[in-house]
């Protein structure tokens, strides 16, 4: 779930090193990334996954010739075969193409992770920067909210929400985001507090910059790179959360496929169709792994001093 206080603790290092984002920082980063094959491979894998997920409709109609919900119950539990593309990963208990469902599952899982992380990022950045900049009562409120939410075990909260509401992918992702912004907020707040005392910010303030302009022009650009890294890691964490919550039956409801509920379903039919268990499991592991690796790599590229410092899980 959210990168929590420990993560933020680790991030205290860069404060002394922060400088204004310049072309140099980004070009340095790109240079470093180009010499980091692990990160490049992980990025490539992610790009492929995202492309496949985005092209799910196109691929389903023109390549697999199957819709994700299309059933053929008389050919259920079929083992993977190379005969037709839709049979590549076999069929499930209703004779649906596992390959096509994996594609759509990617779409749902990546959307839940991506959109959830984006929500978390927007809330966390806004709350963190404003709290750090204005301090006072607003800061107290934000800190209190963060501490409170950090004190409720996340799955318990998701359970109670699962009882009260029936969530479709979109509100589900949004809700995950509403719970996931804490780490990002902590980091943004800490950075803002130290940045607002720096000379160039003070200078800008004396010149008469409005607070909004100050935050948007001078503070956010400085902290954004690492926030993006935190966001990448958050995506991975949310994908794992989705699979966990699906496992206990309160996640995305079938027949809409997500990697989480496909995995749960496969576990039910293990004796009839053992082949169903590997594709969604591997998809989750590989995606989350790549997200972490890219997060790690980006962070190293942006600031080599931080090597190994972030990426705590949940």
């Amino acid at each position: 779930m959210a990168a929590t206080d420990a993560t933020v603790q680790q991030l205290r290092v860069p404060v002394a090193e922060t400088r204004r984002v310049s072309a140099g920082l980004w070009s340095d980063a790109v240079w470093r990334l180009r010499h980091d094959p692990t990160t490049l491979v992980a990025m490539a894998v992610l790009v492929v996954f995202v492309t496949l997920a985005l092209g799910a409709d196109f691929l389903a109609t023109s390549f697999f010739h199957r819709a994700f919900s299309q059933q053929d119950i008389l050919s259920s539990y079929e083992k993977p075969s190379l005969a037709e593309p839709w049979q590549w990963l076999g069929t499930d208990e209703l004779g649906r193409s596992q390959a096509v469902r994996l594609l759509y599952g990617a779409r749902v899982s990546l959307f839940v992770g991506g959109f959830g992380a984006l929500t978390a990022l927007v809330i966390g950045l806004t709350a963190g920067v404003t709290a750090g900049y204005f301090r006072g009562w607003w800061d107290d409120v934000v800190v209190w909210l963060v501490t409170t939410l950090n004190s409720i075990p996340r799955l318990y909260l998701l359970l109670i929400v699962g009882i009260l509401w029936r969530l479709e992918p979109f509100p589900f992702a949004m809700f995950l985001g509403l719970l996931g912004w804490l780490g990002i907020c902590n980091y943004a707040r800490g950075q803002t507090i130290s940045l607002r005392e720096r000379e160039y910010v003070l200078a800008a303030r004396t010149v008469g910059c409005t607070p909004l302009r100050l935050m948007v022009r001078h503070i956010v650009p400085n902290i954004l790179p690492l926030i993006i890294v935190l966001g990448m890691i958050e995506i991975g964490q949310l994908i794992l959360t989705e699979s966990a919550i699906s496992f206990i039956g309160f996640g995305i409801q079938p027949p809409t496929p997500s990697w989480g509920n496909m995995l749960t379903n496969a576990a039910q039919y293990l004796s009839k169709a053992p082949h169903l268990i590997f594709p969604p499991g591997l998809a989750v592991v590989v995606t989350v792994l790549c997200l972490y690796l890219v997060g790690d790599g980006l962070r190293d590229a942006l600031d080599p001093r931080l090597r190994g410092a972030i990426g705590t899980r949940r």
Partner: peptide
């Protein structure tokens, strides 16, 4: 029953009735 529910959803689509499954 869970499987029959998903099966029914697809079957009834064939006869022009839309089903919203709930577990």
């Amino acid at each position: 029953r869970e499987t029959i529910l998903q099966f029914a959803q697809e079957q009834y689509k064939q006869i022009g009735i839309q089903i919203d499954p709930l577990l």
